[in-house]
Amino acid sequence: MSLRLVSAALLCVAVTVALAWAVLDRPLPEENLPDRVAAAMPESGVDHPVTAVLLNFRSYDTLLEIAVLLLAVVVALALREAQPDQPEAMGLDNPLLRAVMAWLLPLILIVAGFLLWAGSYQPGGAFQAGSVLAAAGVLLRLAGVTTAWLDNATLMRAGLALGLLTFLGVGLLVMIPGAPFLTYPLEYAGTLILVIELTLTLSIGLTLISLFRLTPPYADDPDEAREQAGKTP
């Protein structure tokens, strides 16, 4: 047990105590944001408050959040190594997985659709649905199934960009009558949010799948890793 670890432990305890104190000492807020959310719900175009906050009241946050996801993919693309992908290298040689996939895939798609649809009145929404979609992609990949459209770079990139582009486009289009950025007109709010959610689901799913696929291949042996690295300039 080095001095470093002891001091680290002591400091973390101190930080935790300070935080706990802060939590205990907290005065209750005077501002009542939930009430405001509830009051504005009828104008939001959806029935579930979390979705309303995410995609209407604070939709700008969500826009930037999608940008963060896209960023991760860009960096992954930039750091992809020169060697060609070997799809079979990632697949686990497991016939059972392939067999189960045939059953699971439709189910996963249905669940994703349901989550997306549910978002408007109960917990759920684009990110949750997108994650489930991505899970399907990962499973496919693990099972060694290759699909042509997943390997098509142009199509893939278009899919990645679709969500953010739609979001931005809607945000800018609604400005034409003179409203601020991302102000949905009341009568179209529900539709617009649904369109955004749909495209976001697709893009988020694709983003997560490509993040999984783009990660540099794994080598167990450091020496081997170094060797491989040496080969690729």
Partner: peptide
């Protein structure tokens, strides 16, 4: 962590 603890406490 050290600075955080000092400033907070």
């Amino acid at each position: 962590a050290l600075l955080l603890a000092v400033v907070a406490l």
